[in-house]
Design a protein around this nucleic acid. Structure first.
Length: 198
DNA sequence: CACCAGGGTGGTT
DNA sequence: AACCACCATGGT
């Protein structure tokens, strides 16, 4: 089967689960971005705990987080896993935010994505999540849930994130989703994935 | 006790 | 470009 009709998929999921009104959980853009890093290979519940810990410590803001010690951050986010890795990534993101976040508005969607990929700890999937839910630019998260769903619908999904994303691009152009629809679509795919568990 | 969660990086082939 | 070991805690 060639690439699936994403508009049909969207309609089906919407009918099955109802409107989710879904947006990435988080009060402000910075919190959403930090949450996207914290949840990497972890669980949302653990990411939330870490976010609250950072908030209570007054570190859920770019400048304070960039200026904190790595050890302090480690003690607050340990529960999200990879304690020797994530604190550095969070600080890299905070430092980037202080220095370059304001410059993104002048960039194209593609340029903004490249900019995000330059941050330590921001790879393909996290870049797409931040593009969509922080920068509010069109993006589709080619994550594990999307892979399973599209595989079950008979599409031979490419292995790597890059190849997956590239192969799906024509279908995305065809569907002409708005940013709000793409956000909702991801929420629906996650909902569908969690519901039937793997 | 085994398995795995809304990934990314660096090194190797 | 694909593949791999590694990073690691907490939940089930």
């Amino acid at each position: 089967m060639e690439t699936p009709d994403l508009r049909v998929l969207y309609t089906e999921l919407l009918r099955r689960h109802g409107p989710q009104g879904w947006w990435w959980p988080g009060e402000n853009p910075f919190e959403i971005a930090i949450g996207a890093v914290l949840v990497q290979r972890s669980r949302w519940g653990q990411a939330v705990i870490s976010l609250r810990n950072l908030e209570r410590a007054g570190l859920l803001a770019p400048t304070p987080l960039a200026g904190a010690t790595e050890e302090t951050i480690r003690s607050l986010v340990r529960g999200s896993g990879f304690p020797t890795v994530k604190p550095r990534r969070l600080q890299a993101l905070a430092a980037w935010w202080v220095q370059r976040y304001s410059t993104v508005s002048a960039m194209t969607d593609a340029e903004a994505r490249v900019e995000l990929l330059g941050i330590e700890g921001v790879g393909e999937e996290t870049a797409d999540a931040i593009s969509l839910y922080v920068l509010r630019r069109p993006a589709f998260l080619c994550d594990e849930y999307a892979r399973r769903l599209l595989t079950d619908r008979g599409w031979d999904v490419p292995r790597s994130y890059r190849a997956f994303r590239r192969a799906l691009d024509p279908a995305l152009q065809e569907a002409r989703f708005s940013v709000a629809e793409l956000a909702e679509l991801h929420g629906l795919i996650v909902e569908e994935g969690k519901l039937r568990g793997r």
